[in-house]
């Protein structure tokens, strides 16, 4: 059984008379431990897909099963609990709370799952350790470089041992060198057995993942555009190189 099962999912917005299909009948699976990228130009619907997968949004039609649980008709409270326990997010703009220290930022998800103070600190330090940020625990986000902030954000995403981590353009706000380092951190986490979904418009970044889902106009593209994805160059990481969902 796949970790995530997406069946005929559509997301339809209405702007007056006009109907906008942000997602149109998407069906796919993500297996446990997979390292996967969702790629597509802006406005393609990839963000909508991520929001639905990440339980930030619910689909207009279709069903999602996450870790064996149907996410359908769940209350906002239940969705919050699922986000808290099973999902980690990493954002383009890091989204650390500026008034809190790095440690407090990493503790944040555990505050909402009711973990006691001591355990919170221990687990946060462990998470910071795993991204190489333990020595910056007492710093404020504003005192850190972009790459360091993103590492702290990754520690926060990992701290509740989620089933799946979504990274939305995680390198979009970093220089290429730092971005490279963040990507290799994801690769490392992947080898440790984490399920990671990279969401990006950049084929070079998508190239690091063994599997890619390309979204275009709200649908999963049948054929990957090799020139766009630059796959002729990036097929190396192995596995089922052709990311087309058949």
């Amino acid at each position: 059984m796949a970790l995530v099962e997406l069946r005929n999912v559509s997301k339809i917005y209405r702007l007056g008379e006009e109907e906008i299909r942000a997602l149109d009948d998407v069906t796919t699976d993500i297996a446990e431990g997979e390292f996967i990228s969702i790629i597509g130009p802006s406005g393609s619907g990839k963000s909508t897909l991520m929001h639905i997968l990440g339980c930030l949004d619910s689909p207009t039609k279709g069903t999602i099963r996450l870790d064996g649980v149907m996410i359908h008709g769940a209350s906002s409270r239940q969705l919050a609990a699922i986000r808290n326990q099973k999902i980690g997010f990493v954002f383009q703009f890091f989204n650390l709370l500026p008034k809190l220290t790095v440690l407090q930022n990493v503790e944040l998800p555990m505050i909402y799952s009711g973990v006691s103070g001591k355990e919170r600190r221990d687990r946060s330090m462990a998470a910071l350790e795993s991204v190489g940020m333990a020595n910056r625990a007492k710093h404020r986000p504003s005192q850190l470089s972009g790459g360091q902030q993103q590492r702290a954000a990754i520690a926060r995403a990992l701290v509740n041992s989620p089933k799946i981590v979504f990274a939305d353009e995680p390198t979009g706000n970093l220089d290429s060198h730092t971005g490279e380092a963040i990507l290799s951190l994801f690769r490392k986490l992947s080898t440790e057995g984490r399920t990671i979904v990279l969401v990006t418009h950049d084929p070079e970044i998508a190239a690091v993942t063994p599997r890619r889902i390309e979204i275009r106009d709200g649908r999963i593209a049948e054929k990957i555009d090799l020139t766009l994805a630059g796959l002729d160059r990036a097929a190396a990481p192995g596995g089922p190189a052709a990311g087309a969902e058949a």
Binding site: L56, S76, A80, R83, N95, L97, L108, Y112, S113, N160
Partner: peptide, 16 residues
């Protein structure tokens, strides 16, 4: 607003 969004994304419920 952004802080509230972040808190919600890491699992804060409406009531929180």
């Amino acid at each position: 607003v952004r802080e509230i969004g972040i808190r919600k994304s890491v699992g804060a419920a409406t009531i929180d």
